Simulated scan of single mutants.
Amino acid sequence: MTVSGIISALIVGLIIGLLGRLVVPGKQRIPIWLTIVVGFIAAMIGTFIANAMGVGDTRGIDWIELIIQVAVAAAGVSLVAGLYGRKHVH
């Protein structure tokens, strides 16, 4: 994997993670690095699901794939925020 590939993966992870955080109601007390990790994993899982459904590669913007990725990110953010919050109670 090249440096540009890593940077692209981090940017996609950040965007998908932030969109996932926007969908989840309330405040999520997780750091930005964890949001990126959740977003990156959600993007990979969402792409796998979209490809399995046959909607991973369409003309133009792959809206269905993006919606699946954001939904997976929202579930991931919700799960991680709950687990992270329990470990880091102030």
Rank of each mutant, 00 (worst) to 15 (best):
S4W: 04
S4L: 11
I6H: 06
I6R: 07
I7P: 00
I7T: 01
S8H: 03
S8Q: 06
L10V: 11
L10S: 13
V12L: 14
V12A: 11
V12S: 10
G13L: 11
G13H: 05
L14I: 04
L14F: 14
L14P: 05
L14C: 10
I15P: 01
I15V: 15
I15L: 07
I15D: 04
I16Q: 02
I16D: 01
G17P: 06
G17F: 04
G17W: 00
G17L: 02
L18C: 13
L18N: 10
L18M: 14
L19T: 12
L19G: 15
G20Q: 04
G20T: 02
G20K: 00
G20Y: 01
R21K: 14
L22D: 12
L22T: 15
L22Q: 15
L22W: 13
V23G: 03
V23I: 14
V24D: 03
V24I: 07
V24F: 11
P25Y: 11
P25V: 05
P25M: 07
G26M: 08
G26K: 11
G26D: 10
G26E: 15
G26N: 13
K27V: 00
K27M: 05
K27L: 05
Q28W: 00
Q28V: 02
Q28H: 11
I30C: 03
I30T: 03
I30Y: 02
I30L: 05
P31M: 09
P31H: 11
P31A: 09
I32A: 06
I32V: 08
I32P: 02
W33L: 09
L34T: 00
L34N: 01
T35H: 03
I36L: 11
